[in-house]
Design a protein around this nucleic acid. Structure first.
Length: 269
DNA sequence: GCTAAATGTTGAT
DNA sequence: TCAACCTTTAGCT
């Protein structure tokens, strides 16, 4: 489930497994072989996430390509474990081994080794990431509050806000009782302040849980115990089902190239 | 067991 | 506008 929470969680796991260790970096599939050779045998120093981008830094001189840059895209996924790595099967883009651990990467849309300058060029194009301590919500507000484009589209724009994907878009707007069709410039400063606070809390929770859960206990069918998949969202992928708050049927429509879900009664304007 | 769709983005047409 | 990435899951039969 690669929205920002997945990337930050992965960064934390990779860091705890590998930071300080020399890694054997390979590309069994071959597509990442040239990049792997640049960092193979070097120690991993830090792992950094910004939005949906992950950067693992290796102990190499500045100026040389030394950041492993990964974007999972829609299918990309890490598998990790302790001890010896399992036998290679299928399309395995990259394998990291060292410090008694291994990590396998499959299906990413980006897997490359880049320089400091190239890393800066990537992050410069990203809006504030709610999961970063250095995030400045005013940067997002400046863009949102000047735009005639709908908030449903703006939230998906990584230049506005980094790390939000289709699930957080739908759920954040529902929780804030904001219509996805409202123009950014029609948001009030209070709307944005509370949305940012809510988003930070939701995404932190996503990192901890390893999945997106946005429902409050009182809005779930099962109010105690484990939160089931069916109970974890208000509107995302709930087309035609009754809204958990008002009973109106959840609607769907394509917006910004993706399926948007919303309750037309709870999210009037 | 099979098929379609999915949390995202880029690059070709 | 569409294919690619090529995994995982939900929903059928």
């Amino acid at each position: 489930m690669p929205e920002g929470h997945t990337i930050h969680r992965t960064a934390g796991l990779l860091s705890s497994m590998f930071a300080g260790s020399e890694l054997h970096v390979s590309s069994p599939q071959g597509r990442f072989a040239p990049g792997a050779a640049l960092v193979d045998g070097r120690a991993l120093t830090t792992v950094d996430a910004w939005g949906k981008h992950l950067f693992a830094a290796f102990d190499l001189p500045a100026g040389q390509p030394r950041h492993l840059h990964i974007h999972l895209g829609l299918y990309g996924k890490f598998a990790m474990g302790d001890g010896d790595a399992p036998p290679v099967r299928g399309a395995l883009r990259a394998r990291l081994e060292g410090g008694g651990h291994w990590a396998d990467l499959r299906g990413p849309i980006v897997c490359e080794v880049i320089t400091d300058e190239e890393k800066d060029a990537v992050t410069r194009l990203l809006g504030p990431d709610p999961l970063r301590r250095d995030a400045d919500p005013d940067r997002a507000w400046k863009r949102l509050s000047r735009s005639g484009i709908s908030v449903g589209q703006l939230l998906m724009d990584q230049k506005v806000l980094a790390g939000v994907g289709n699930v957080y878009r739908a759920e954040l707007l529902f929780r804030g009782e904001v219509s996805p069709f409202r123009a950014g410039r029609d948001l009030t400063p209070d709307d944005w302040d509370s949305a940012w606070v809510d988003l930070v809390a939701l995404m932190k929770r996503g990192v901890k849980a390893g999945r997106i859960v946005t429902t409050r206990p009182e809005d779930r069918a099962r109010r105690s115990g484990v939160v089931t998949v069916a109970d974890s969202h208000y509107v995302y992928r709930r087309t035609g089902l009754p809204c958990r708050r008002c009973g109106e049927l959840v609607r769907t429509e394509v917006m910004a190239g993706r399926n948007l879900f919303w309750c037309a009664r709870c999210q009037v304007s």
